[in-house]
């Protein structure tokens, strides 16, 4: 077991996923199975190989610095769960 319940809880917190206590062992089991599969990667040495982040090894294209967007706040905020005075509302953020 690479991942125990405690570690699963930590990851769930990192990803801000609320997981029911009783579901934790199930996730732990499945994640360990997947990690077991992933372990097959250790079969080969890779230190000398460059990572490939993208199938297409090309350079980033650049955009001209031009303002192309107009205000669509009303349109976009139709999907928002809570807005007021044009602001998206969330429970109080304490710093």
């Amino acid at each position: 077991m690479v991942l125990d319940s405690d570690k699963v809880k930590k990851i769930a917190h990192l990803a801000r996923l609320g997981i029911k206590e009783e579901d934790i062992p199930g996730y732990a089991q499945d994640l360990n199975k997947i990690l077991g599969l992933v372990e097959n990667m250790s079969a080969i040495k890779t230190e000398a190989i460059l990572p490939l982040a993208h199938p297409m090894e090309v350079a980033q294209r650049l955009r001209a610095d031009v303002v192309t967007e107009v205000d669509q706040r009303v349109h976009f905020q139709k999907n928002a769960p809570a807005v007021e005075a044009g602001l998206y509302l969330v429970p109080k953020v304490i710093e």
């Binding site: 992933v38 990667m41 080969i44 890779t46 190989i49 490939l52």
Partner: peptide, 8 residues
Amino acid sequence: KAQRIRRL
């Protein structure tokens, strides 16, 4: 490691 094998 996965990205390196991706190249292979």
